[in-house]
Write a protein that binds this DNA or RNA. Structure first.
Length: 306
DNA sequence: CCCCTGTCCTGCCTGC
DNA sequence: TGCAGGCAGGACAGGG
């Protein structure tokens, strides 16, 4: 599943291969992939026809491209989504859900399939592929004013907090919001209105690095503890980005950033029964919110009242 | 208003 | 061999 660093790789790929191109037509092959576009698949295609896509932006795991008319194209990869830039003659993927064609995507001359592309990205189309259809694309009005308006932030993202890699992320604001909540630290890390872009895996990784148990009450967080936790989240994300951030570089590669490297750099997630890399104690797994939490029982002491 | 649970979806893996 | 069931996960609707 794409974590924030992989989504950032996708953003870079979109910016390089898709931004600046003008849409001719859009094909929705599975209605669920546009379910967040409430007006339906036909309207979705109508709103994209003829527009030129702006720069690619990201907040947390959301991606968007302004359309220059007060609306933006919004995307989320969900659990299994990919955005691919493919030559037209490549056969459809098994789980192709949406296809976007561009004005520079020349149809191959009859009987002459596979001719060379006119421009660098010419001859390619954008494909949204998603096995489990948790992700999707949609078009929305942008927020009307403020700094978010300048980047065409889609209205549905107005309540999403900045992610820790953004300049706009304010550690003091986050800490105060954390202290106001009556909940536990891992729940808070997964709450998109407090901090975005942290999924189950990176939450466990950052908590392990910070020696914090997932069930610690947020009310017990001190300013230095919060600072340390944020620093560790940035580290985990930064390491992954450094490792996988170059895989978008070649054309025709999927911009999804799947590199396989990401999994290997994990310290606790998925390591039940294996020794903690700090103290050697065996890592444990606990069922948690219909998911799992991995932790070191020695480095990450549970709170007194759980 | 705040917090928490259930739900969406499909392929892979395990165990009977 | 085949099938049932568990698991994975982000985001959000709706319940308490």
């Amino acid at each position: 599943m794409p974590e924030l660093p992989e989504v950032e790789v996708v953003r870079r790929g979109l910016e390089r291969w898709v931004s600046g191109r003008t849409v001719t037509d859009t094909e929705v092959l599975h209605p669920r992939a546009v379910r967040r576009h409430l007006a339906g698949a036909a309207d979705f295609a109508d709103r994209l026809r003829g527009v030129t896509l702006g720069p690619a932006y990201r907040r947390g795991k959301y991606l968007w491209l302004p359309l220059g008319n007060g609306t933006s194209l919004l995307g989320h990869l969900g659990m299994s989504g990919q955005l691919l830039v493919q030559p037209q003659n490549v056969p459809d993927e098994a789980h192709l859900r949406i296809r976007v064609r561009f004005t520079d995507t020349a149809a191959p001359a009859a009987g002459e399939a596979g001719t060379s592309a006119a421009g660098e990205a010419g001859g390619t189309e954008l494909r949204f592929v998603d096995q489990r259809t948790f992700g999707g694309l949609s078009v929305h009005d942008c927020v009307p004013d403020g700094p978010d308006a300048a980047v065409g932030l889609p209205l549905p993202l107005a309540h999403i907090a900045p992610d820790p890699l953004e300049k706009a992320f304010d550690e003091d604001v986050f800490h105060e919001a954390l202290r106001r909540r009556r909940t536990t630290i891992k729940r808070a890390l997964l709450d998109q209105s407090l901090i975005s872009g942290v999924g189950n895996i990176y939450a466990d990784e950052a908590l392990w690095r910070s020696k914090l148990h997932y069930d610690r009450p947020t009310a017990a967080m001190t300013r230095p503890r919060t600072a340390e936790l944020i620093a560790h989240i940035r580290e985990v994300m930064g390491d992954a980005l450094a490792a996988g951030g170059t895989s978008f570089d070649s054309l025709y590669v999927n911009v999804n950033g799947e590199s396989g490297y990401f999994d290997r750099s994990l310290d606790v997630y998925g390591r039940e029964g294996e020794p903690c890399r700090r103290c050697g104690t065996l890592i444990r797994r606990r069922p948690w919110m219909n998911r799992s939490s991995y932790f070191c029982p020695r480095c990450q002491r549970p709170p007194r009242v759980s």
